[in-house]
Design a binder for these strands. Structure first.
Lengths: 360, 360
DNA sequence: CGCGTGCATGTAAGCGCATACATCAGCCGC
DNA sequence: GCGGCTGATGTATGCGCTTACATGCACGCG
């Protein structure tokens, strides 16, 4: 294989599995008790500095690594935080994972990742797994069809919902999707569109609906009604977005003058379909996509985008969960919904939206 | 807040922290010994089916969740697998995380995520943290400047390197970047380019260099030398890619006729710069980017891309680590480098590469 | 000079669970 | 009809660590 010879030589097969160094070993080797070793290692002031030094030095010399499992059991301490999400390829969750790993890591916690793929069965297993791992807290983006068992398993530790809610906890961090889609729809309405299609997700309990609500509300506000024929709700995959866009935009005659997309995955598929169909954007149809404004800005034309504040959301949820696991309870954030935060999305207006061509 | 009233009501504050149900509780309630309960719950054949049923039913009724920490300690079993990566926003790692979480999860393991940001200090802490958590195995993408301490902490469990190597283990899964860049460079050479620039990463121990090697080798193969002036090595951030592309392509006179980009993050920055500079692609300069072919296909023009086989890599590493943690040792994969797999990248030729304009 | 005080350390009891070993019943064969 | 054997269950130990409590020592005071 071509790259073979350039790679560093692999390490020799690990030494023949010598038993890991334990506190008892250190204690025996230094002629002190395990209690003293434990105290020294944990920085207890009750041990003479001189002895403590000796113990700590010897521990590092011997390559001692404390067994967190045993420590956790003995001290009834919790050092893990669960992260329960459908899909870590989704930018919202990967950024949250990064941020939480950093902030919680600095506080001595480690993230346990549970990826459910929005499958209720796996979600349940994951929830039980996390609960069994004695996590200090859980960040969860529950699926639409979460089971009762799962809900029960998630009942105990301090959990905070993220990006979606199933009413699991009084704490949560979300994007204010409804407001975002009110704004996006208004933008189209103001340009003169009256035949607007919405392509969204079937995501039943959470933000999928908030977005549709926003579209509806903005229509109502303008004295219009969103035509049910113009609403497509599908599972949020790129392929579905691609297919739906082909359907919606394929037939020139039956085309809406504007298309709102309510999911980041769908958006990618729509962008691809628009390119394939070579439909004039925005002359023939205006397009608003959702999610990460980065790639959509590189498209031709650059796509007007509902830009979700991924980083802010991540920051806020990390702070929130950190507060919960360290201090026990977080101070209430607002009067009516303590602990729930709704972050605003920004509408990034680019070249994919414009006035509709006059109907002939 | 606008979306407030539409969200499901948060759950009532969790019940006043009743003690979790333990094996001993179940045993007492059913007038059997803890041993019998434990056996029943673990499906031991040594317990009468009738009793087993009763115990299992009662356990689920009481909402018993086994304490994995204690179980792990008592049975000396390991139920975690560590996942040590620089950055989970990178598609290579997020896909690997997804796949590993699924496959390992199905086998009863749970991923512990350690994100280092390529900071040696955090990397070391993470390695110790994982080792202390008694992981069954570790998937690691070591940083270029991994410390000796970290190396030592990573010595024991069955570790497999992913995407990058620091010679930590005899097992690993990588993209054959060198071959990929030989192919990409040949593609440009065949088109007639002789003034090719390479924008890559400073990533010292691993694939950053393999890519540059590929570019060099392909040049050598054609009897050409890669001009050192045409090589830019920077840290792989989008901003750096953006800045470097502005530098390289800004001055029309001093422009190379083709640009190879050797990092997915840099590629995004380059794409943005190209768009800003309004430089003719491929008439004035051909561009080859690296990484995910999805977004680069939506650019204008669609970018020729070294498409990394993220999914295959993820699949292979998941299988590999699963084999290691369950069976102990994996069968050797190849004659010379047992356990190391190099997966080929595909060159997706699109519209951003063409023959150079004749020099005047 | 004896006794309380406080501090450094040791001793031992778990944490929740699995499991080696002991126990005890029922069964077979002779 | 009794020894040994199998199979179901109980008893008790320990995983590696923390920590309440006991111990012992040096010191100061009356």
């Amino acid at each position: 294989m071509s790259a073979t010879k350039r790679s560093p030589a692999p390490a020799a097969p690990a030494a023949p599995a010598e038993r890991a160094v334990r506190v008892a070993d250190l204690a025996a080797e230094l002629n002190v008790s395990t209690a003293t070793v434990s105290r020294a290692l944990n920085g207890s002031p009750a041990v003479r500095p001189q002895i403590a030094r000796r113990i700590i030095d010897h521990a590092r010399l011997r390559g001692y690594v404390p067994n967190r499992i045993a420590r956790s059991l003995a001290a009834r301490s919790k050092t893990f935080v669960g992260f329960l999400v459908p899909d870590v390829q989704n930018l919202a969750y990967s950024i949250a994972a990064t941020t939480c790993a950093r902030l919680l890591g600095a506080a001595g916690y480690q993230l346990i990742l549970a990826i459910t793929g929005d499958d209720p069965r796996r979600e349940h297993e994951a929830a039980v797994g996390l609960a069994g791992a004695q996590v200090a807290g859980i960040i969860a983006a529950p699926s639409a069809d979460i089971t009762e068992d799962c809900r029960a398993a998630l009942a105990h530790p301090s959990v905070v919902e993220f990006n979606r809610t199933a009413g699991l906890a009084p704490y949560g961090v979300f994007c204010d999707d409804r407001a975002a889609f009110v704004e996006a729809t208004r933008h189209l309405l103001d340009l003169g569109h009256t035949d607007i299609a919405y392509l969204g997700t079937t995501d039943a309990v959470s933000n999928g609906l908030w977005r549709l609500d926003g579209v509806r509300d903005a229509h109502a506000e303008a004295g219009l009604a969103l035509d049910p024929e113009r609403v497509r709700l599908v599972a949020p995959t790129e392929e579905n977005g691609h297919a739906a866009a082909h359907e919606l935009l394929g037939a020139r005659a039956a085309r809406p003058t504007a298309l709102l997309v309510g999911s980041s995955n769908l958006s990618v598929g729509v962008a691809r379909a628009v390119r394939e169909l070579a439909v004039g954007v925005p002359e023939e149809v205006s397009v608003v996509v959702y999610g990460d404004p980065k790639w959509s800005g590189l498209c031709d034309p650059a796509l007007t985008t509902v830009a979700v504040p991924y980083r802010e959301m991540a920051q806020v949820v990390a702070d929130l969960v950190l507060g919960l696991v360290t201090e026990g309870q977080e101070d209430a954030a607002g009067p009516d919904e303590p602990g729930r935060r709704w972050l605003p999305a920004a509408l990034v207006v680019r070249s994919s939206t414009g006035p509709p061509r006059p109907r002939g």
